[in-house]
C-alpha cells in the first residue's frame, strides 16, 4: 500500500519507535538492537500464548526480527511501529501454521485446542468438583485454566484476543495487523470473549478447582 509523505511524516513525529526503525533503515545496528530489546518480550509473549510452546515461539520470534531487518530498506511508516511489527508477527504465525498443517508434523494448537479443548476442561472440572472441596482458585490453577480456555479459541480469535489484551491495541490497529476490517474484528472479539466466558465462567462462579493437565 502506498503511504503518503504527510502520513509517514506524521507517524515519524508521533512514534519514537518509528524513528528508531527509520534509523535501522539507514543501517544503524544500535537502533535495531534497541528495537529488539524493546519488543522481544512482547513478541515472545504473544507468540508463546498463541502457539503454546516456548521453543517454537522463540523460533517464530527470531523469524519476525529477521523479517524486520530484511524489510528495513523498504520501510515507510504507514502506521504505528507496533502495528507494523504485529502484522509481521501475524504473517509469520499464519505461515507457520499453514506449513505445519501441510506437513502434519505438529499441531500449532495445544493438546486441548478446539472443541475437544472445551470438552476436556469441562470433564476435568467436573471430575474435580466431585472429588475435591470447593475453594478459590490459586494462581497456577487459574493460569492453567485460562491457557486451556485460550487454546479452545480458533487461531484468529486467539490472535485478536492476545493483541487486545497484551498489546492494548485498538480494533482498527488489530484489523490492520490481521488484514481484516475493524467491523470483522469487533465480531471476532465478541465471539472470542463469549467463548472464553462459556468456558471460564462456571469455574469462576463456583470456584471449582480444575485438574491441572498432566497432573
Amino acid at each position: 500500500m502506498a503511504v503518503s509523505e504527510s502520513t509517514a511524516r506524521e507517524y515519524e513525529l508521533r512514534d519514537p519507535d518509528v524513528r528508531l526503525m527509520l534509523e535501522v533503515r539507514d543501517d544503524n545496528a544500535a537502533a535495531f538492537e534497541e528495537l529488539m530489546l524493546r519488543y522481544q518480550n512482547r513478541v515472545l509473549t504473544v507468540l508463546e500464548n498463541l502457539v503454546g510452546r516456548r521453543d517454537q515461539a522463540e523460533d517464530l520470534a527470531q523469524e519476525v526480527f529477521l523479517r524486520v531487518f530484511r524489510a528495513r530498506k523498504r520501510y515507510v511508516p504507514g502506521s504505528k511501529f507496533s502495528t507494523w511489527l504485529f502484522t509481521i508477527v501475524n504473517n509469520v504465525a499464519s505461515n507457520a501454521r499453514r506449513t505445519m498443517s501441510r506437513r502434519k508434523e505438529v499441531n500449532l494448537d495445544t493438546e486441548t485446542s478446539g472443541p475437544q479443548g472445551k470438552q476436556s476442561i469441562a470433564q476435568l472440572a467436573q471430575a474435580a468438583s466431585g472429588q475435591m472441596p470447593t475453594r478459590v482458585l490459586d494462581k497456577a490453577e487459574a493460569r492453567d485454566m485460562v491457557l486451556a480456555a485460550l487454546s479452545s479459541l480458533n487461531e484468529r480469535q486467539r490472535m485478536a484476543v492476545l493483541l487486545c489484551k497484551f498489546e492494548g491495541m485498538s480494533y482498527s490497529d488489530i484489523a490492520e495487523a490481521m488484514g481484516m476490517s475493524p467491523k470483522a474484528i469487533k465480531s471476532l472479539l465478541s465471539r472470542a470473549r463469549e467463548n472464553l466466558r462459556e468456558v471460564l465462567e462456571p469455574y469462576l462462579e463456583r470456584g471449582e478447582r480444575p485438574v491441572r493437565s498432566g497432573s
Binding site: R197, L200, E201
Partner: peptide
C-alpha cells in the same frame, strides 16, 4: 461476567527473553 473473564486473562504467562535468545537472534541476523 465478561469483565471478570477478561481480567482472568491477566494470569496468562508473560514471556521474558533471556540473553541466549537475544544473542542467537543477533547471530542469526
Amino acid at each position: 461476567q465478561l469483565q471478570r473473564v477478561w481480567d482472568l486473562l491477566d494470569e496468562l504467562p508473560r514471556a521474558e527473553a533471556d540473553d541466549r535468545f537475544t544473542t542467537s537472534t543477533v547471530e542469526l541476523i
